[in-house]
Design a protein around this nucleic acid. Structure first.
Length: 892
RNA sequence: GCCGAAGUGGCGGAACUGGUAGACGCGCCAGACUCAAAAUCUGGUAGUGGCAACACUGUGUGGGUUCGAGUCCCACCUUCGGCACCA
């Protein structure tokens, strides 16, 4: 079938109307055609090109760039639709907008794909990028594609290397050993996700911890600023700032030592504690398996050596370590309590981490829950040194108050008895200092950022190892160190190690043959500054250029809540380093943050008597309902046999509950997909997938199209007098302008696109009910339809592009200004007041908008329903909330 | 285990500053159109009791503050996100 385009300018339309009776606007909505036309128009006019212009106010809207995993998933669609709505909204408010897009192109999945299919990660990645770019374009996002970047390209990662070298010079980047997961069979380092139940994912071998040399970035040097500057981010969600503050974890405590003699030498066991007030209650110390003291003690103690080995096995993940059974073994070594001089036994504990603080802790079983259980388990003594008035201490079981800093007072602590937390810590720290055995110290939970990865598909670390000169930085003129793109990882370690042409090189210092570093950088490095590169001209002469100063900081950053800590903290750190290197100005890269929720779908499965659980995609399952719409079961459509429900979960391959955006776009069009995504939930909440919901979104667009078509095909209205409207039309105009005000606030301030769309739907419903064909009605309807179309345009840009033209505009809607509310239209003579009796709704009264409180009270008391409930009981009190409600409080 | 969130009809959600609980959408029911179905349109739809008017109950659970609590406070339960090599 062939349909004439409905895009006609107004005078021409009038002529057509007068000549023939055939409709000029196609009454049915065909999304494919509409969307193609709109995209062609934007393309032809280069509508999305962003040009820095210091005379104009900028708005930099950034969505977290995708990992090119193969195809878009619904999380991407949601993320980028939110960004696009804000970008288009701000553009219509006159801002000079920038919305870029690119690819977080290095990472593990490319290597996994290579192992599965034998395709080089580079080819796999570039193919995925090409496909996903097409998908993004078909969604109609207002992206300036001229700024596209991919982090796996040398012109991008060259600057990772360049800034890394500057960090080396500043002492921010440095080398030390770190612990990794080691697969003894594949002889390779595993990522945490490649360790399943303590075993290598491919080999099934028990994973070991192994210490290897790695490069670290001293993010802890910026800890104080990273914490303090959270106050400069009032437009970030409170919960993200709290999570970051807790992650950085500043604590003021005391670092002190337990002296001891070892082989006749005087040694010190250093520990850190935030509870120095409990120091008199120390009954033992615990050290990590890797601690020198443990190593020493294990030398002549096979049982202890075996235990130390056991501790070294297993996961390096904190969540695992925190939940493992607490185990320990005595070393046989005793240290001396720095204040009492008593001997204190030292244990090895599997819950003490070498990487944290000193790798050793003091244990106060009476006032630390973990120590308490450990002491009970191994029969170690428990000594109460804190008391709370009115509470009874017992070693039988743990009680919350044992660790109470606020109410606790020192007891059994000699000269410190009676002191509260602050006074006790001060006094004890002073005494330790006097003995030269310790002092107060600020401690951070935050650890330095280990950036070395023993993997191929990443940015090479620009270091050359020379036998004579040691570790030599690659000179700037030799950057970038280019990663060969034809390697195919096979699971047995980094293929770069086998690439002689990559590894073999000359020492830049002495010219002798040397070995190139084969470790690559953590992909969090790539994503720590891409936002600044977009904003630059992306030339080869500098990491970022002057244009960055115009666009940065990002005005609105949007991404998943799962990035609330790591990515955002690393980016803030990297940006500060760039600032201190003189590359950029300003303390923070992201002025405002929106953390979008996950996209969920139902999970269906069958669990055969033997074998693995089989998951079914919800598209293949039919849900059975009873008369009232209650769910009674579900069957697989192909065999009509029941399947079990596994509840709701994040869309994932493993649960087979993903929905392909491509299929959705093909069936309904991009606008329907976008509308559903924005309507189904507020952006920060999780979003549950619903096929029926999508169909509903599409139904609304069809209804809107028809409404506009009927209006346009009846002939566009001329000028009509709207100063003296009959009440129903006045009400419609009022609703239109109320909706305009609400939607402007919902998108611009509240970011609740779901309520914005609901409000527009209400206006459309009201509009559908008006059947008046008078010129006045036509004019009011026309104005209301224009408002509807404009308000929806950030969400559904294609259909509104067409409808706007159909409504007689020659200027494209994307270039139109957001309309202003006509406050005169909002005026109301009479308002409804709710009347309560003892807090319960008992009636409603209409009162003049200008009524005084006394008058409102009188009218409320006169209401029939109210009078019935008040009866002859005495009125104790009347509360009047102007414009809203009256509450009458009566006795009894 | 630690840190951070969320829990409201059959379902997704609304209620923004403590002031009408359930907007809007989905689903379901009834009706119109149709030979029929789909699509579309109209109406109904928290629960219980009642012919109805209306009344009572109701925002995860248990307490509290208030004239008034989904919203504030305390305790608990469940689900989700992060925990440093997934991105």
């Amino acid at each position: 079938m062939c349909y004439k385009t409905r895009v006609v300018n107004r005078p021409f339309l009038k002529i057509i109307n007068s000549l023939i009776s055939r409709p000029v606007m196609e009454p049915q909505y065909f999304p494919e055609k509409v969307e193609q036309d709109a995209r062609a128009w934007w393309g032809k006019h280069r509508s999305f090109k962003a040009v820095a212009d210091p005379r104009r106010e900028k708005y930099y809207c950034l969505s977290m760039f995708p990992y090119p995993s193969g195809k878009l998933h619904m999380g991407h669609v949601r993320n980028y639709t939110i960004g696009d709505v804000l970008t288009r909204f701000m553009r219509m408010h006159g801002k000079n907008v920038l919305q870029p897009m690119g690819w977080d192109a290095f990472g593990l999945p490319a290597e996994n794909a290579a192992m599965a299919n034998g395709v080089p990660p580079a080819k796999w990645t570039y193919d995925n990028i090409a496909y996903m770019k097409k998908q993004l374009q078909s969604l109609g996002f207002a992206i300036d594609w001229e700024r596209e970047i991919a982090t796996c390209k040398p012109e991008y990662y060259k600057w990772n290397q360049w800034l890394f070298l500057r960090m080396l010079e500043k002492g921010i980047a440095y080398k030390k050993t770190g612990v990794v997961n080691w697969d003894p069979v594949d002889q390779t380092v595993l990522a945490n996700e490649q360790v399943i139940d303590g075993r290598g994912w491919r080999t099934g071998a028990l994973v070991e911890k192994r210490e290897i040399p790695m490069y670290y970035l001293a993010i802890t040097k910026y800890a104080e600023e990273l914490l303090a500057d959270l106050d400069k981010l009032p437009e970030w969600p409170e919960r993200v700032r709290t999570m970051q503050a807790n992650w950085i974890g500043k604590s003021v405590g005391v670092r002190f030592a337990f002296p001891y003699k070892l082989d006749g030498r005087d040694e010190k066991l250093w520990v850190f504690t935030t509870r120095a007030d409990t120091i008199m209650g120390v009954t033992f110390c615990a050290v990590a398996a890797e601690h020198p003291l443990a190593t020493h003690a294990a030398k002549n103690n096979p049982k202890l050596a075996a235990f130390v080995d056991e501790c070294k096995r297993g996961s390096v993940m904190e969540a695992d370590i925190a939940t493992i059974e607490k185990k320990g073994m005595p070393t046989g070594i005793s240290v001396t309590h720095p204040l009492t001089g008593e001997p204190i036994p030292v244990w090895v504990g599997n819950y003490v981490l070498m990487g944290y603080g000193e790798g050793a802790v003091m244990a106060v079983p009476a006032h630390d829950e973990r120590d308490f259980h450990f002491a009970k388990q191994y029969g170690l003594s428990i000594k109460q040194v804190i008391a709370v008035e009115g509470e009874q201490f017992t070693t039988d079981n743990w009680t919350e108050w044992y660790a109470d800093k606020e109410r606790g007072r020192c007891v059994n602590s000699g000269k410190y008895d009676g002191l509260g937390y602050d006074a006790a810590v001060d006094a004890i720290a002073a005494d330790l200092k006097a003995k030269g055995l310790g002092d107060k110290q600020v401690m951070w939970r935050l650890r330095d950022w280990g950036v070395s990865r023993q993997r191929y598909w990443g940015c090479p670390i620009p270091i050359i190892h020379c036998e004579a000169c040691g570790d030599v930085p690659v000179p700037d003129k030799d950057l970038p160190v280019v990663l060969p793109e034809d390697c195919v990882p096979d699971g047995s370690g980094n293929p770069l190690n086998k690439r002689a042409d990559f590894v073999n090189c000359q020492c830049p210092k002495c010219g002798q043959p040397a070995r190139r570093e084969t470790d690559t950088m953590d992909t969090f490095v790539d994503s720590s500054w891409y936002y600044a590169r977009y904003a630059s001209e992306r030339g080869d002469s500098a990491m970022v250029d002057g244009e960055t100063g115009y666009w940065m900081p990002v005005d609105q950053y949007i991404g998943g809540i799962e990035h609330a800590i790591l990515h955002l903290l690393y980016s803030r750190f990297w940006w500060k380093v760039m600032r201190d290197t003189g590359l950029v100005r300003g303390d923070e890269p992201f002025a405002r943050l929106l953390t979008q929720g996950m996209v969920l779908n139902e999970i269906f499965f069958r669990k055969p008597a033997s074998g693995r659980i089989q998951y079914f995609n919800p598209a293949e399952v039919e849900v059975k309902l009873d008369d009232k719409g209650n769910r009674v079961g579900a069957v697989l459509m192909s065999d009509d046999q029941p399947v079990e429900s596994g509840g709701i979960g994040t869309m994932s391959k493993s649960k087979n509950n993903g929905v392909d955006p491509q299929a959705l776009i093909e069936q309904y069009g991009a606008d329907t997909a976008r509308l559903f995504m924005m309507f189904a939930a507020p952006p920060e909440d999780t979003l549950e997938w619903s096929d029926e919901g999508v169909a509903g979104a599409n139904r609304f667009l069809r209804r809107l199209w028809k409404l506009v078509a009927e209006h346009v095909n009846a002939g566009l209205p001329g000028k009509a007098d709207i100063s003296n409207l009959p009440e129903p039309l006045k009400a419609l105009r009022r609703l239109a302008h109320q909706t305009l005000a609400k939607v402007t606030d919902d998108i611009g301030r509240r970011r609740t696109f779901n309520t914005a769309i609901a409000a527009v739907m209400e206006l459309v419903n009201a509009l559908s009910r008006i059947e008046d064909g008078s010129p006045q009605a036509k004019a009011v309807r026309h104005e209301a339809l224009e408002i509807v179309v404009v308000l929806l345009s950030p969400m559904v840009p294609h259909i509104t592009h067409a409808l706007w033209q159909a409504l007689g505009h020659t200027q494209a809607i994307i270039d139109t200004s957001w309309p202003a509310v006509d406050t005169a239209a909002l005026k109301q003579d009479s308002i409804e007041i709710v009347v309560q009796v003892n807090g319960k709704l008992r009636g409603r009264v209409a009162v003049p908008a200008t009524a005084a409180e006394d008058e409102v009270r009188k009218l409320a008391l006169a209401d029939e329903g109210v009078a019935r409930h008040v009866g002859d009981k005495p009125v104790k009190k009347v509360i009047v909330v102007p414009g809203k409600l009256v509450n009458i409080v009566v006795a009894g």
